[in-house]
């Protein structure tokens, strides 16, 4: 074709060849219910199976390593039999600090709830302030960056000296540990609000307060929840450490108490509980954040 066109330099029309395609009726694939159920089951297995396998192998190795007579740590079977009282009845209450796992954990969670809520309110407010003002940002950001690296327990002596009581000191440690990521993430969120949104607010003449709760807060929600999620994890770390020192009912002091009376199995069970609760706290904040920031994160 190309050569012909070149030599003759006259375009020649070529008839379109007869269509040879035939029309095949389209049939939607029908999958029987059994096959669909199998598909779902396979999906569930692929998600659930790997952790179960890894967990089993870990427990098995642990059992083998710690079963010899001279082992320092109890094997899983001994942990379960030693700590059976503590595992089986989380609701017992023998007075004093001798309480079940539920009471220990809920006491700790209560402290986290108070300290973390205070941190959330103060952190979001400070974050918005810092994010909106370049000068506040320049002045405060270096201080935040330094203070946020101070470990929770390093605050405890200072707060005991200031508050003179164990409980407010524990709350303060939670507060001061979890507030930094909330401030920092909120301020980054506020600075990243698109200029378009500010223009819209200016054109319809929203007041300062309306801009705050109709534009700034919703636009910053995904960032705030990132901060809250990191914050809640840190506050759970801090409470366990703080309770070890201040005593009383709480999962942190429970571990310390168990160590002092050589109940190693109880410590191991408490560790598992702490891990699970921390995981659930993280998932809780993530879920709330997912619902609250629905529209924004879908951008």
């Amino acid at each position: 074709m190309q050569i012909a066109a070149k030599s003759a330099s006259v375009a020649t029309a070529v008839p379109v060849p007869e269509s040879t395609a035939e029309i095949v009726p389209f049939r939607a694939p029908v999958r029987p219910a059994v096959e669909r159920a199998m598909g779902i089951a396979r999906h569930v297995l692929s998600v659930v199976l790997p952790p179960i396998i890894v967990l089993s192998i870990t427990l098995l190795v642990w059992q083998l390593l710690c079963s010899e007579p001279g082992a320092h740590l109890p094997p899983p079977t001994k942990v379960v039999s030693d700590a059976w009282d503590f595992i089986a009845d989380p609701f017992y209450d023998n007075g004093g600090i001798d309480k079940g796992a539920f009471w220990q954990i809920s006491q700790s969670l209560g402290r986290v709830a108070i300290g973390f809520s205070l941190a959330a309110v103060a952190g979001i407010a400070l974050g918005v302030l810092v994010g909106q003002s370049t000068w506040a940002m320049r002045g405060l950001d270096p201080i935040f960056q330094v203070l946020r690296t101070v470990p929770p327990l390093a605050w405890l002596p200072l707060s005991l000296a200031g508050f003179r009581h164990a409980d407010p000191s524990a709350l303060f440690v939670i507060f001061i540990t979890s507030i930094w990521p909330i401030i920092i993430n909120t301020s980054v969120g506020v600075r990243n609000i698109p200029q378009d949104y500010r223009n819209v607010a200016a054109v319809i003449r929203l007041s300062w307060w309306e801009v705050f709760y109709k534009i700034t807060l919703p636009a910053t929600v995904p960032y705030i929840f990132t901060g809250l999620r990191i914050g809640v994890g840190l506050s759970w770390l801090a409470i366990v450490a703080a309770e070890m020192l201040i005593g009383g009912v709480g999962i942190g002091f429970f571990i310390w108490d168990a160590w002092n009376s050589s109940r190693i199995s109880d410590i191991i069970v408490a560790l598992v509980y702490i891990g699970i609760v921390g995981f659930l706290l993280d998932k809780l904040i993530a879920t709330v954040g997912h619902f609250v920031s629905h529209g924004v994160s879908a951008q």
């Binding site: 223009n199 819209v200 054109v203 319809i204 534009i215 919703p218 636009a219 951008q299």
Partner: peptide
């Protein structure tokens, strides 16, 4: 700025939430 001079922005500028 004011609503007597409403603006249609190039990138629509709708509030996503």
């Amino acid at each position: 700025p004011g609503p007597d001079r409403a603006i249609v922005f190039q990138n629509h500028s709708l509030l996503p939430w």
